[in-house]
Amino acid sequence: MGENQKIPKILVFSTEKISDPAIDLAGLLKKHYPPTVYVVNVPCSSSVKPKWILHAFKKGFDGVFIAADGSDCQYSETCTFNTGEIVRKTHDLMKKKGIEPSRLKMAAICSVCSDPFVKQMKSFIEALI
């Protein structure tokens, strides 16, 4: 890590009812994570369009993280699978465009998973540097 090196920017797709509370909780407990993490919320992690992800990379985001509902999803039990499919599909598209697939990550963040979220963010940033 050199001086004045830019911190990678991460876009997080988070879900209103599951991972948002966890991210809020991290703030509430003053668990710090890099300030270049931006959260955009969606109803469910299976609703993220690959198009949006690619748009984010195009606009200069270094990484995209999907905070998946996992088994907590209130809409469907297939949510984890669906989100996985979106990531798989997007990875393919990224490869075609020459974007390193490791720049898109997903992990389940439950509604109280503030610690895992902070850890995920820190390790993702580390990996992107």
Binding site: M1, G2, E3, N4, Q5, K6, I7, K9, L11, P35, T36, Y38, V40, W52, H55, A56, K59, G60, F61
Partner: peptide, 16 residues
């Protein structure tokens, strides 16, 4: 996408 644009647009001195 407009939100993503806005978040990406400003490129401040986020450096280590």
């Amino acid at each position: 996408e407009s939100m993503i644009d806005a978040l990406a647009s400003y490129s401040p001195e986020f450096t280590i």
